[in-house]
Design a binder for these strands. Structure first.
Lengths: 252, 252
DNA sequence: ACGATACATGCAGAAACGTGCAAGAACAGG
DNA sequence: CCTGTTCTTGCACGTTTCTGCATGTATCGT
Protein backbone atom coordinates (compact mmCIF):
# COMPACT_ATOMS: atom_id res chain seq x y z
CA UNK A 1 0.00 0.00 0.00
CA UNK A 2 1.65 3.18 -1.17
CA UNK A 3 1.21 6.60 0.31
CA UNK A 4 -0.71 8.09 -2.61
CA UNK A 5 -2.92 5.03 -2.68
CA UNK A 6 -3.67 5.50 0.97
CA UNK A 7 -4.56 9.12 0.43
CA UNK A 8 -7.00 8.21 -2.31
CA UNK A 9 -8.49 5.58 -0.09
CA UNK A 10 -8.97 8.10 2.67
CA UNK A 11 -10.57 10.66 0.39
CA UNK A 12 -12.99 8.21 -1.15
CA UNK A 13 -13.79 6.85 2.26
CA UNK A 14 -14.47 10.35 3.41
CA UNK A 15 -16.71 11.02 0.45
CA UNK A 16 -18.51 7.75 0.91
CA UNK A 17 -18.95 7.60 4.65
CA UNK A 18 -18.87 11.26 5.50
CA UNK A 19 -16.23 10.69 8.17
CA UNK A 20 -13.02 8.93 8.92
CA UNK A 21 -12.10 7.23 12.16
CA UNK A 22 -8.33 6.95 12.26
CA UNK A 23 -8.33 3.87 14.42
CA UNK A 24 -10.72 1.93 12.18
CA UNK A 25 -8.88 2.80 9.00
CA UNK A 26 -5.58 1.77 10.51
CA UNK A 27 -7.01 -1.54 11.58
CA UNK A 28 -8.74 -2.01 8.24
CA UNK A 29 -5.63 -1.40 6.19
CA UNK A 30 -3.27 -3.06 8.59
CA UNK A 31 -1.10 0.02 9.03
CA UNK A 32 -0.29 2.04 12.09
CA UNK A 33 -2.53 4.80 13.30
CA UNK A 34 0.42 7.12 13.05
CA UNK A 35 0.50 6.83 9.29
CA UNK A 36 -3.20 7.48 9.07
CA UNK A 37 -2.86 10.50 11.27
CA UNK A 38 0.04 11.76 9.20
CA UNK A 39 -1.98 11.38 6.00
CA UNK A 40 -4.95 13.10 7.51
CA UNK A 41 -2.74 15.93 8.69
CA UNK A 42 -1.40 16.35 5.16
CA UNK A 43 -4.84 16.22 3.59
CA UNK A 44 -6.09 18.77 6.06
CA UNK A 45 -3.14 21.01 5.22
CA UNK A 46 -4.24 20.89 1.60
CA UNK A 47 -7.76 21.71 2.61
CA UNK A 48 -9.09 18.35 1.49
CA UNK A 49 -10.52 17.39 4.83
CA UNK A 50 -11.12 18.75 8.25
CA UNK A 51 -9.07 17.21 11.01
CA UNK A 52 -10.96 16.41 14.17
CA UNK A 53 -10.20 14.47 17.31
CA UNK A 54 -10.44 10.81 16.41
CA UNK A 55 -10.26 11.16 12.66
CA UNK A 56 -11.45 13.58 10.03
CA UNK A 57 -14.58 15.04 8.50
CA UNK A 58 -15.24 16.56 5.07
CA UNK A 59 -14.10 20.15 4.78
CA UNK A 60 -17.73 21.05 5.03
CA UNK A 61 -20.46 18.48 4.73
CA UNK A 62 -21.15 17.89 1.04
CA UNK A 63 -24.63 19.24 1.41
CA UNK A 64 -23.63 22.41 3.06
CA UNK A 65 -21.13 23.50 0.50
CA UNK A 66 -23.47 22.52 -2.29
CA UNK A 67 -26.30 24.66 -1.01
CA UNK A 68 -23.82 27.37 -0.22
CA UNK A 69 -22.50 27.26 -3.77
CA UNK A 70 -26.08 27.33 -4.93
CA UNK A 71 -26.87 30.44 -2.94
CA UNK A 72 -24.78 32.79 -5.01
CA UNK A 73 -24.18 32.37 -8.68
CA UNK A 74 -21.04 34.31 -9.46
CA UNK A 75 -21.18 36.72 -12.31
CA UNK A 76 -18.86 34.63 -14.46
CA UNK A 77 -21.06 31.58 -14.22
CA UNK A 78 -24.12 33.60 -15.09
CA UNK A 79 -22.45 34.95 -18.24
CA UNK A 80 -21.32 31.51 -19.29
CA UNK A 81 -24.79 30.16 -18.57
CA UNK A 82 -26.47 32.85 -20.65
CA UNK A 83 -24.22 32.17 -23.62
CA UNK A 84 -24.82 28.45 -23.30
CA UNK A 85 -28.58 28.90 -22.99
CA UNK A 86 -28.53 30.80 -26.27
CA UNK A 87 -27.27 27.67 -27.99
CA UNK A 88 -30.42 25.78 -27.11
CA UNK A 89 -32.84 25.99 -30.04
CA UNK A 90 -36.56 25.59 -29.78
CA UNK A 91 -37.54 22.00 -30.35
CA UNK A 92 -34.07 20.61 -29.85
CA UNK A 93 -32.89 18.13 -27.28
CA UNK A 94 -30.08 19.09 -24.95
CA UNK A 95 -28.14 17.07 -22.42
CA UNK A 96 -27.45 19.14 -19.36
CA UNK A 97 -24.75 18.16 -16.90
CA UNK A 98 -24.97 18.63 -13.14
CA UNK A 99 -23.13 21.27 -11.16
CA UNK A 100 -23.70 24.87 -10.40
CA UNK A 101 -22.85 26.21 -13.83
CA UNK A 102 -25.27 23.83 -15.50
CA UNK A 103 -27.84 24.83 -12.94
CA UNK A 104 -27.31 28.41 -13.95
CA UNK A 105 -27.95 27.37 -17.56
CA UNK A 106 -31.27 25.84 -16.51
CA UNK A 107 -32.24 29.10 -14.89
CA UNK A 108 -31.04 31.04 -17.90
CA UNK A 109 -33.28 29.20 -20.34
CA UNK A 110 -36.17 31.36 -21.59
CA UNK A 111 -39.31 30.53 -19.66
CA UNK A 112 -41.29 29.94 -22.84
CA UNK A 113 -38.68 27.82 -24.59
CA UNK A 114 -39.97 24.48 -25.80
CA UNK A 115 -37.25 21.85 -25.83
CA UNK A 116 -36.20 18.59 -24.28
CA UNK A 117 -33.65 18.53 -21.49
CA UNK A 118 -31.92 15.30 -20.52
CA UNK A 119 -30.05 15.37 -17.25
CA UNK A 120 -28.71 13.22 -14.46
CA UNK A 121 -29.07 15.99 -11.92
CA UNK A 122 -32.13 16.09 -9.64
CA UNK A 123 -31.28 19.69 -8.88
CA UNK A 124 -31.57 20.59 -12.54
CA UNK A 125 -34.90 18.81 -12.74
CA UNK A 126 -36.26 20.78 -9.82
CA UNK A 127 -35.02 24.01 -11.39
CA UNK A 128 -36.72 23.17 -14.68
CA UNK A 129 -40.07 22.57 -13.06
CA UNK A 130 -40.84 26.20 -13.63
CA UNK A 131 -40.29 25.90 -17.37
CA UNK A 132 -43.67 24.59 -18.50
CA UNK A 133 -42.61 24.01 -22.07
CA UNK A 134 -39.48 22.08 -21.29
CA UNK A 135 -39.78 18.33 -21.48
CA UNK A 136 -37.42 16.79 -18.93
CA UNK A 137 -35.93 13.34 -19.06
CA UNK A 138 -34.13 12.23 -15.94
CA UNK A 139 -31.27 9.73 -16.01
CA UNK A 140 -31.34 7.61 -12.88
CA UNK A 141 -28.65 5.82 -10.96
CA UNK A 142 -26.71 5.91 -7.76
CA UNK A 143 -26.66 9.45 -6.44
CA UNK A 144 -23.29 10.95 -5.61
CA UNK A 145 -23.82 13.18 -2.64
CA UNK A 146 -20.82 15.33 -3.38
CA UNK A 147 -22.22 16.79 -6.57
CA UNK A 148 -25.81 15.64 -6.27
CA UNK A 149 -25.97 13.81 -9.57
CA UNK A 150 -26.70 10.26 -10.64
CA UNK A 151 -23.55 8.36 -11.53
CA UNK A 152 -22.34 4.84 -11.81
CA UNK A 153 -23.10 1.96 -14.12
CA UNK A 154 -26.86 2.38 -14.05
CA UNK A 155 -26.65 6.05 -14.97
CA UNK A 156 -24.21 5.41 -17.80
CA UNK A 157 -26.47 2.68 -19.07
CA UNK A 158 -29.49 4.96 -18.93
CA UNK A 159 -27.55 7.52 -20.94
CA UNK A 160 -27.05 4.99 -23.73
CA UNK A 161 -30.77 5.15 -24.46
CA UNK A 162 -30.95 8.84 -25.26
CA UNK A 163 -29.69 11.07 -28.02
CA UNK A 164 -29.51 14.82 -28.23
CA UNK A 165 -28.44 17.66 -30.46
CA UNK A 166 -26.36 19.36 -27.84
CA UNK A 167 -24.53 18.48 -24.65
CA UNK A 168 -23.49 21.12 -22.14
CA UNK A 169 -20.84 19.83 -19.77
CA UNK A 170 -19.37 21.39 -16.69
CA UNK A 171 -15.83 20.54 -15.63
CA UNK A 172 -13.61 21.64 -12.78
CA UNK A 173 -10.40 21.97 -14.74
CA UNK A 174 -9.54 23.29 -18.20
CA UNK A 175 -5.87 22.95 -19.00
CA UNK A 176 -4.01 22.99 -22.34
CA UNK A 177 -2.01 19.89 -21.47
CA UNK A 178 -4.22 18.02 -19.02
CA UNK A 179 -7.35 18.68 -21.06
CA UNK A 180 -10.78 18.75 -19.44
CA UNK A 181 -10.71 17.31 -15.96
CA UNK A 182 -12.88 16.77 -12.93
CA UNK A 183 -12.29 15.59 -9.41
CA UNK A 184 -14.15 12.30 -9.42
CA UNK A 185 -13.59 9.28 -11.64
CA UNK A 186 -17.26 8.29 -11.69
CA UNK A 187 -18.30 11.76 -12.66
CA UNK A 188 -15.72 11.83 -15.40
CA UNK A 189 -17.07 8.60 -16.82
CA UNK A 190 -20.61 9.92 -16.64
CA UNK A 191 -19.66 13.09 -18.46
CA UNK A 192 -18.01 11.03 -21.19
CA UNK A 193 -21.14 8.94 -21.54
CA UNK A 194 -23.25 12.07 -21.85
CA UNK A 195 -20.99 13.71 -24.40
CA UNK A 196 -21.06 10.57 -26.51
CA UNK A 197 -24.84 10.83 -26.89
CA UNK A 198 -24.94 14.32 -28.36
CA UNK A 199 -24.06 15.63 -31.79
CA UNK A 200 -22.25 18.61 -30.30
CA UNK A 201 -20.61 19.02 -26.93
CA UNK A 202 -19.76 22.36 -25.38
CA UNK A 203 -17.85 22.85 -22.17
CA UNK A 204 -19.03 25.32 -19.56
CA UNK A 205 -15.94 26.86 -18.00
CA UNK A 206 -16.14 30.01 -15.98
CA UNK A 207 -12.83 31.84 -15.87
CA UNK A 208 -11.62 30.45 -12.54
CA UNK A 209 -11.48 26.97 -14.09
CA UNK A 210 -9.18 28.04 -16.93
CA UNK A 211 -5.64 26.85 -16.53
CA UNK A 212 -6.39 24.45 -13.68
CA UNK A 213 -6.47 20.68 -13.73
CA UNK A 214 -8.16 18.11 -11.54
CA UNK A 215 -7.34 14.49 -11.10
CA UNK A 216 -9.47 12.78 -13.72
CA UNK A 217 -9.56 13.38 -17.45
CA UNK A 218 -13.03 13.83 -18.92
CA UNK A 219 -12.49 14.28 -22.64
CA UNK A 220 -9.70 15.11 -25.05
CA UNK A 221 -9.96 18.35 -26.97
CA UNK A 222 -10.82 16.60 -30.22
CA UNK A 223 -14.13 15.34 -28.93
CA UNK A 224 -15.66 18.65 -27.99
CA UNK A 225 -17.26 21.20 -30.26
CA UNK A 226 -16.29 24.19 -28.22
CA UNK A 227 -15.61 25.89 -24.94
CA UNK A 228 -17.81 28.55 -23.40
CA UNK A 229 -15.95 30.84 -21.04
CA UNK A 230 -16.00 34.35 -19.69
CA UNK A 231 -12.22 34.49 -19.59
CA UNK A 232 -10.72 37.23 -21.72
CA UNK A 233 -10.05 36.12 -25.33
CA UNK A 234 -6.42 37.18 -25.02
CA UNK A 235 -5.94 35.13 -21.85
CA UNK A 236 -2.77 33.10 -22.34
CA UNK A 237 -4.42 29.74 -21.80
CA UNK A 238 -7.37 30.65 -24.01
CA UNK A 239 -5.04 31.61 -26.83
CA UNK A 240 -3.21 28.34 -26.41
CA UNK A 241 -6.49 26.50 -26.72
CA UNK A 242 -7.48 28.43 -29.81
CA UNK A 243 -4.16 27.48 -31.39
CA UNK A 244 -4.98 23.88 -30.67
CA UNK A 245 -8.12 24.27 -32.73
CA UNK A 246 -10.61 24.56 -29.87
CA UNK A 247 -13.51 26.81 -30.70
CA UNK A 248 -13.88 29.27 -27.85
CA UNK A 249 -17.22 31.01 -27.40
CA UNK A 250 -16.72 34.19 -25.40
CA UNK A 251 -19.34 34.82 -22.73
CA UNK A 252 -20.19 38.21 -21.41
CA UNK B 1 -19.40 8.81 17.43
CA UNK B 2 -16.69 11.44 17.45
CA UNK B 3 -16.88 14.75 19.23
CA UNK B 4 -16.92 16.87 16.09
CA UNK B 5 -19.51 14.59 14.61
CA UNK B 6 -21.68 15.10 17.65
CA UNK B 7 -21.45 18.84 17.27
CA UNK B 8 -22.60 18.62 13.66
CA UNK B 9 -25.40 16.38 14.74
CA UNK B 10 -26.51 18.87 17.34
CA UNK B 11 -26.43 21.77 14.92
CA UNK B 12 -28.44 20.00 12.26
CA UNK B 13 -30.85 18.77 14.87
CA UNK B 14 -31.22 22.30 16.05
CA UNK B 15 -31.87 23.53 12.52
CA UNK B 16 -34.39 20.82 11.88
CA UNK B 17 -36.33 20.69 15.11
CA UNK B 18 -35.82 24.21 16.32
CA UNK B 19 -34.73 23.03 19.75
CA UNK B 20 -32.53 20.56 21.53
CA UNK B 21 -33.37 18.67 24.68
CA UNK B 22 -30.11 17.53 26.22
CA UNK B 23 -31.61 14.51 27.90
CA UNK B 24 -33.27 13.22 24.73
CA UNK B 25 -30.19 13.65 22.61
CA UNK B 26 -28.04 11.90 25.19
CA UNK B 27 -30.45 8.99 25.27
CA UNK B 28 -30.76 8.97 21.51
CA UNK B 29 -27.04 8.83 20.88
CA UNK B 30 -26.27 6.64 23.84
CA UNK B 31 -23.87 9.09 25.45
CA UNK B 32 -23.91 10.85 28.77
CA UNK B 33 -25.81 14.06 29.29
CA UNK B 34 -22.59 15.63 30.42
CA UNK B 35 -21.10 15.34 26.97
CA UNK B 36 -24.16 16.87 25.40
CA UNK B 37 -24.11 19.72 27.85
CA UNK B 38 -20.43 20.28 27.26
CA UNK B 39 -21.01 20.39 23.49
CA UNK B 40 -23.90 22.77 23.86
CA UNK B 41 -21.80 24.97 26.08
CA UNK B 42 -19.07 25.08 23.44
CA UNK B 43 -21.50 25.78 20.63
CA UNK B 44 -23.08 28.54 22.65
CA UNK B 45 -19.64 30.01 23.28
CA UNK B 46 -19.15 30.18 19.52
CA UNK B 47 -22.52 31.80 19.12
CA UNK B 48 -23.94 28.85 17.23
CA UNK B 49 -26.80 28.26 19.59
CA UNK B 50 -28.47 29.72 22.60
CA UNK B 51 -28.13 27.76 25.77
CA UNK B 52 -31.29 27.37 27.81
CA UNK B 53 -32.26 25.29 30.79
CA UNK B 54 -32.78 21.75 29.57
CA UNK B 55 -31.09 22.11 26.21
CA UNK B 56 -30.56 24.77 23.59
CA UNK B 57 -32.36 26.94 21.08
CA UNK B 58 -31.26 28.51 17.79
CA UNK B 59 -29.48 31.82 18.07
CA UNK B 60 -32.23 33.55 16.17
CA UNK B 61 -35.48 31.63 16.04
CA UNK B 62 -36.43 33.36 12.79
CA UNK B 63 -33.79 31.69 10.67
CA UNK B 64 -34.92 28.21 11.54
CA UNK B 65 -36.32 26.72 8.42
CA UNK B 66 -38.24 24.34 10.56
CA UNK B 67 -40.87 26.94 11.23
CA UNK B 68 -41.11 27.83 7.58
CA UNK B 69 -41.35 24.19 6.69
CA UNK B 70 -43.89 23.63 9.39
CA UNK B 71 -46.04 26.32 7.87
CA UNK B 72 -46.20 24.57 4.53
CA UNK B 73 -46.26 21.01 5.84
CA UNK B 74 -49.55 20.49 7.59
CA UNK B 75 -49.47 18.89 10.97
CA UNK B 76 -51.18 15.75 9.75
CA UNK B 77 -48.58 15.08 7.12
CA UNK B 78 -45.80 15.61 9.61
CA UNK B 79 -47.31 13.09 11.98
CA UNK B 80 -47.77 10.56 9.22
CA UNK B 81 -44.24 11.19 8.03
CA UNK B 82 -42.78 10.73 11.50
CA UNK B 83 -44.58 7.42 11.95
CA UNK B 84 -43.47 6.27 8.51
CA UNK B 85 -39.88 7.33 9.14
CA UNK B 86 -39.85 5.18 12.26
CA UNK B 87 -40.47 2.13 10.06
CA UNK B 88 -37.17 2.62 8.28
CA UNK B 89 -34.54 0.49 9.94
CA UNK B 90 -30.85 1.16 9.84
CA UNK B 91 -29.27 -0.68 6.94
CA UNK B 92 -32.54 -1.37 5.17
CA UNK B 93 -33.60 -0.29 1.70
CA UNK B 94 -36.74 1.75 1.29
CA UNK B 95 -38.58 2.89 -1.80
CA UNK B 96 -39.88 6.39 -1.32
CA UNK B 97 -42.65 7.76 -3.50
CA UNK B 98 -42.90 11.35 -4.66
CA UNK B 99 -45.31 13.90 -3.29
CA UNK B 100 -45.37 16.21 -0.31
CA UNK B 101 -46.04 13.52 2.27
CA UNK B 102 -43.13 11.42 1.06
CA UNK B 103 -41.01 14.55 1.10
CA UNK B 104 -41.98 15.03 4.72
CA UNK B 105 -40.83 11.47 5.37
CA UNK B 106 -37.44 12.29 3.87
CA UNK B 107 -37.14 15.23 6.19
CA UNK B 108 -38.31 13.18 9.14
CA UNK B 109 -35.59 10.56 8.75
CA UNK B 110 -32.94 10.80 11.48
CA UNK B 111 -29.92 12.68 10.16
CA UNK B 112 -27.56 9.90 11.19
CA UNK B 113 -29.63 7.04 9.82
CA UNK B 114 -27.73 4.78 7.46
CA UNK B 115 -30.02 3.23 4.86
CA UNK B 116 -30.72 3.10 1.16
CA UNK B 117 -33.49 5.17 -0.36
CA UNK B 118 -34.79 4.43 -3.82
CA UNK B 119 -36.96 7.09 -5.37
CA UNK B 120 -38.22 8.50 -8.65
CA UNK B 121 -38.55 11.97 -7.20
CA UNK B 122 -35.79 14.52 -7.76
CA UNK B 123 -37.27 16.57 -4.96
CA UNK B 124 -36.75 13.71 -2.53
CA UNK B 125 -33.18 13.31 -3.73
CA UNK B 126 -32.44 16.97 -3.08
CA UNK B 127 -34.01 16.71 0.36
CA UNK B 128 -31.89 13.67 1.20
CA UNK B 129 -28.65 15.43 0.32
CA UNK B 130 -28.46 16.54 3.91
CA UNK B 131 -28.54 12.97 5.15
CA UNK B 132 -24.89 11.97 4.75
CA UNK B 133 -25.46 8.35 5.68
CA UNK B 134 -28.34 7.73 3.32
CA UNK B 135 -27.43 6.06 0.06
CA UNK B 136 -29.78 7.34 -2.65
CA UNK B 137 -30.71 5.56 -5.83
CA UNK B 138 -32.61 7.60 -8.35
CA UNK B 139 -35.00 6.04 -10.83
CA UNK B 140 -34.91 7.94 -14.08
CA UNK B 141 -37.47 8.49 -16.77
CA UNK B 142 -39.69 11.09 -18.30
CA UNK B 143 -40.43 13.73 -15.70
CA UNK B 144 -44.06 14.57 -15.09
CA UNK B 145 -44.19 18.25 -14.30
CA UNK B 146 -47.41 17.94 -12.43
CA UNK B 147 -45.96 15.95 -9.57
CA UNK B 148 -42.24 16.31 -10.36
CA UNK B 149 -41.48 12.62 -10.51
CA UNK B 150 -40.09 10.31 -13.15
CA UNK B 151 -42.82 8.23 -14.77
CA UNK B 152 -43.46 6.33 -17.91
CA UNK B 153 -42.04 3.20 -19.43
CA UNK B 154 -38.40 4.03 -18.72
CA UNK B 155 -39.08 4.72 -15.06
CA UNK B 156 -41.12 1.54 -14.65
CA UNK B 157 -38.34 -0.39 -16.32
CA UNK B 158 -35.74 1.17 -14.04
CA UNK B 159 -37.84 0.15 -11.07
CA UNK B 160 -37.67 -3.49 -12.17
CA UNK B 161 -33.97 -3.52 -11.34
CA UNK B 162 -34.29 -2.66 -7.68
CA UNK B 163 -35.58 -4.40 -4.60
CA UNK B 164 -36.32 -3.04 -1.17
CA UNK B 165 -37.54 -4.03 2.24
CA UNK B 166 -40.11 -1.30 2.44
CA UNK B 167 -42.11 0.90 0.11
CA UNK B 168 -43.78 4.08 1.29
CA UNK B 169 -46.42 5.25 -1.15
CA UNK B 170 -48.45 8.41 -1.20
CA UNK B 171 -51.88 8.43 -2.74
CA UNK B 172 -54.55 11.06 -3.21
CA UNK B 173 -57.54 8.92 -2.31
CA UNK B 174 -58.19 6.24 0.32
CA UNK B 175 -61.67 4.81 0.03
CA UNK B 176 -63.12 1.53 1.33
CA UNK B 177 -64.76 0.71 -1.99
CA UNK B 178 -62.53 2.46 -4.54
CA UNK B 179 -59.36 1.43 -2.79
CA UNK B 180 -56.17 3.45 -3.14
CA UNK B 181 -56.38 5.95 -5.97
CA UNK B 182 -54.51 8.76 -7.60
CA UNK B 183 -55.25 11.33 -10.25
CA UNK B 184 -52.95 10.24 -13.04
CA UNK B 185 -52.78 6.92 -14.84
CA UNK B 186 -49.03 7.05 -15.38
CA UNK B 187 -48.44 7.80 -11.74
CA UNK B 188 -50.71 4.98 -10.71
CA UNK B 189 -48.73 2.58 -12.86
CA UNK B 190 -45.48 3.86 -11.43
CA UNK B 191 -46.70 3.40 -7.88
CA UNK B 192 -47.73 -0.14 -8.70
CA UNK B 193 -44.30 -0.83 -10.14
CA UNK B 194 -42.67 0.54 -6.99
CA UNK B 195 -44.88 -1.42 -4.61
CA UNK B 196 -44.12 -4.63 -6.52
CA UNK B 197 -40.42 -4.24 -5.77
CA UNK B 198 -40.69 -4.09 -1.99
CA UNK B 199 -41.37 -6.75 0.59
CA UNK B 200 -43.77 -4.48 2.47
CA UNK B 201 -45.79 -1.54 1.22
CA UNK B 202 -47.28 1.08 3.48
CA UNK B 203 -49.58 3.87 2.35
CA UNK B 204 -49.06 7.41 3.57
CA UNK B 205 -52.49 8.92 4.01
CA UNK B 206 -53.00 12.09 5.98
CA UNK B 207 -56.51 12.42 7.26
CA UNK B 208 -57.85 14.62 4.48
CA UNK B 209 -57.30 11.75 2.02
CA UNK B 210 -59.41 9.31 4.00
CA UNK B 211 -62.76 8.60 2.43
CA UNK B 212 -61.95 10.27 -0.91
CA UNK B 213 -61.29 8.66 -4.26
CA UNK B 214 -59.52 9.79 -7.43
CA UNK B 215 -59.84 8.49 -10.93
CA UNK B 216 -57.16 5.82 -11.15
CA UNK B 217 -56.79 2.78 -8.97
CA UNK B 218 -53.27 2.22 -7.62
CA UNK B 219 -53.48 -1.00 -5.65
CA UNK B 220 -56.08 -3.25 -4.09
CA UNK B 221 -56.12 -3.57 -0.33
CA UNK B 222 -54.67 -7.06 -0.41
CA UNK B 223 -51.37 -5.90 -1.78
CA UNK B 224 -50.44 -3.44 0.90
CA UNK B 225 -49.04 -4.17 4.31
CA UNK B 226 -50.65 -1.27 6.06
CA UNK B 227 -51.92 2.28 6.10
CA UNK B 228 -50.31 5.10 8.03
CA UNK B 229 -52.74 7.86 8.90
CA UNK B 230 -53.35 10.53 11.49
CA UNK B 231 -57.08 10.08 11.24
CA UNK B 232 -58.75 9.08 14.50
CA UNK B 233 -58.84 5.27 15.00
CA UNK B 234 -62.59 5.43 15.49
CA UNK B 235 -63.09 7.34 12.24
CA UNK B 236 -65.86 5.58 10.32
CA UNK B 237 -63.78 4.91 7.23
CA UNK B 238 -60.79 3.77 9.24
CA UNK B 239 -62.92 1.29 11.12
CA UNK B 240 -64.28 0.01 7.84
CA UNK B 241 -60.73 -0.50 6.59
CA UNK B 242 -59.74 -2.30 9.74
CA UNK B 243 -62.69 -4.64 9.28
CA UNK B 244 -61.42 -5.37 5.79
CA UNK B 245 -58.19 -6.56 7.31
CA UNK B 246 -56.10 -3.49 6.58
CA UNK B 247 -53.49 -2.85 9.21
CA UNK B 248 -53.81 0.78 10.25
CA UNK B 249 -50.82 2.42 11.92
CA UNK B 250 -52.02 5.46 13.86
CA UNK B 251 -49.84 8.55 13.54
CA UNK B 252 -49.92 11.11 16.22
C1' DA C 1 -40.86 26.22 50.34
C1' DC C 2 -39.52 21.79 48.70
C1' DG C 3 -38.48 18.01 45.80
C1' DA C 4 -36.88 17.09 41.28
C1' DT C 5 -34.16 18.09 37.70
C1' DA C 6 -30.48 20.46 35.36
C1' DC C 7 -26.17 22.38 35.89
C1' DA C 8 -20.91 23.46 36.72
C1' DT C 9 -16.82 21.80 38.46
C1' DG C 10 -13.20 18.72 39.64
C1' DC C 11 -11.24 14.37 38.93
C1' DA C 12 -9.40 10.08 36.89
C1' DG C 13 -8.97 6.67 33.39
C1' DA C 14 -8.79 6.13 28.62
C1' DA C 15 -7.96 7.43 24.18
C1' DA C 16 -5.86 10.31 20.77
C1' DC C 17 -2.23 13.33 19.72
C1' DG C 18 2.53 15.32 18.38
C1' DT C 19 7.29 14.70 18.35
C1' DG C 20 11.66 12.63 18.20
C1' DC C 21 14.03 8.67 16.81
C1' DA C 22 15.68 4.67 14.46
C1' DA C 23 15.21 1.01 11.04
C1' DG C 24 14.30 0.18 6.41
C1' DA C 25 13.32 1.18 1.40
C1' DA C 26 14.03 3.92 -2.70
C1' DC C 27 17.04 6.45 -5.22
C1' DA C 28 20.90 9.19 -7.20
C1' DG C 29 25.64 9.70 -7.96
C1' DG C 30 30.18 8.15 -7.93
C1' DC D 1 28.61 -2.04 -6.58
C1' DC D 2 28.91 1.00 -2.95
C1' DT D 3 27.59 5.06 -0.44
C1' DG D 4 25.21 8.95 1.08
C1' DT D 5 20.75 11.06 1.03
C1' DT D 6 16.00 11.31 1.43
C1' DC D 7 11.65 9.59 2.46
C1' DT D 8 8.68 6.60 4.79
C1' DT D 9 7.10 3.98 8.59
C1' DG D 10 6.44 2.18 13.09
C1' DC D 11 7.53 2.72 17.96
C1' DA D 12 8.16 5.15 22.41
C1' DC D 13 7.28 8.84 25.24
C1' DG D 14 5.23 12.81 27.21
C1' DT D 15 1.18 15.80 26.47
C1' DT D 16 -3.39 17.01 25.41
C1' DT D 17 -8.15 15.97 24.95
C1' DC D 18 -12.18 13.54 25.84
C1' DT D 19 -15.66 11.35 28.71
C1' DG D 20 -18.20 9.57 32.49
C1' DC D 21 -18.83 9.90 37.40
C1' DA D 22 -19.22 12.26 41.77
C1' DT D 23 -20.05 16.30 44.26
C1' DG D 24 -22.14 20.43 45.37
C1' DT D 25 -24.99 24.31 43.50
C1' DA D 26 -28.56 26.54 40.79
C1' DT D 27 -33.04 26.49 38.71
C1' DC D 28 -37.63 24.89 37.74
C1' DG D 29 -42.33 23.28 38.70
C1' DT D 30 -45.67 22.61 42.08
Amino acid sequence: MMAAERRDHLLSLLAREGKIVAKDVAAGLGISEDSVRRDLRDLAAEGLCQRVYGGALPVSPAVVDYTARQAVTPDGKRKVAATAAALVRSGSAVILDGGTTALAVAHALPLDLACTVITHSPTIVVALLEHPQVEVFLLGGRVFKHSAVACGAAAVEAAQNVSADLCLLGVTGVHPEAGLTTGDAEEAAMKRALAARAADTYILASSEKIGTASRFRVLPWEEISGLITDAAPHHAVVEQLTERGVEVLPAG
